[in-house]
Write a protein that binds this DNA or RNA. Structure first.
Lengths: 203, 203
DNA sequence: GTCATCAGTTAACGCTCGCTAACATCCTCA
DNA sequence: TGAGGATGTTAGCGAGCGTTAACTGATGAC
């Protein structure tokens, strides 16, 4: 039992360091020896915990996709109405983006390095997550076409996922301030879905 | 002269295919043989045109960064006022994002694979481009702090650069429609910089 | 007509990488 | 006590990589 606990903790430790390294230098740019060194063991020692380097990436991507979807679904059903659901989706996504920066980075960057079966699974989870958003945004902004909504949702993902790209500079807002700002920006962007015309001629 | 023209054209052809492959499978995930095959020659034949694989990536990243900055500066000085300058920056960035998808992808993904000198150069060009945006956005939305403006500019980059991530699905808007939508979303997001409070209590 | 240059080829080198094999150590528990 | 599983280690393999070397054919200049 204690051995099992130690093992799980080691696994998680490896996954966390692997995610960080993959995000920093790319999947192909990191060797198993480096991952091992990051947790204090040698490269081949990793094979006591994972079938291979691919398996680590697969577990990371399936995990983040699944958690995003699960949390998103829960937040939507618990919300009082569409506006509250949208706000909850935005807040939840921001928490993921800020707290799990490396995973968010990997999530849209290294998907093609997976075996086909894993890639299909991750794609399916991602698609369901997008659909969750599209349904909610479509109800909050009924004037927009579904194609517009779908593109806007992807664009808002890009907006919210921008945090990992700027590495902890001092000239940036703190966590709470950044979270609130991203939320306002996302709501502002989606709010533009309502105005179908008259955007060109203000000046 | 004719030989030089042929050579330049070949160089550009190689750069275009290399950008596409790097964006698809990552810098480390593409071999020189594949790049050569994409333009109809063998791997080592590339060394008649480039010093190495690194040099191709460097030329791509320096090129896109420089062109973004140059076009951005030109658009700002040619604009009638801050609002027009911001709109011109947005339109210009969208054109880059849509027309040079692979380069936009590489631009924020493979920067760390460069030699230090090249990386410094690209970073400097990127920073100047960001400053161009920050100055304009700060004038259009004087109520926001500079930290907010800076984070918002990065977020809008993420929004505008989201196009490359969705690969030409049929359920998406066409080029002109997508361009107009992205512009509205970006303006909507930045518009949220003006409302400092009262965003939480609408429902 | 010859010769230099350009643009390509194939062969091969040295290095790195993911992974396996074989062995060592510790912990647990009957 | 001692057998066995869990978790490491080091050595080494086989493949793939970027790059260089040596060579070949075409083309244009004098």
């Amino acid at each position: 039992m204690n051995a099992t606990n130690t093992s799980v903790s080691r696994r998680d430790q490896i996954l966390r360091e692997a995610a960080r390294l993959f995000a920093e230098r790319g999947f192909h740019g990191v060797g198993v020896d480096e991952i091992g060194a990051a947790v204090g063991i040698s490269g081949p020692g990793l094979y006591r915990h994972f079938a291979g380097k691919d398996a680590m990436l697969a577990e990371l991507l399936v995990g983040i996709s699944g958690r995003l979807l699960t949390a998103g679904k829960r937040r939507v059903v618990e919300a009082a109405g569409p506006e509250a659901a949208l706000d909850a989706l935005i807040r939840g996504h921001i928490d993921f983006a800020i707290d799990d920066r490396p995973l968010i980075t990997l999530h849209d960057r290294e998907l093609d390095r997976l075996r086909e079966s894993d890639r299909k699974l991750v794609r399916q989870l991602q698609r369901q997550y997008v659909e969750e958003w599209v349904a909610v945004v479509g109800r909050v902004h009924p004037g927009a076409t579904e194609r517009e909504v779908r593109a806007a949702v992807h664009a808002v993902f890009g907006l919210l996922n921008s945090t990992p790209h700027l590495g902890a500079q001092s000239s940036l807002p703190g966590r709470r301030e950044m979270s609130e700002l991203l939320r306002r920006l996302a709501l502002g962007a989606l709010g533009a879905l309502d105005s179908t015309a008259d955007w060109r001629v203000t000046y």
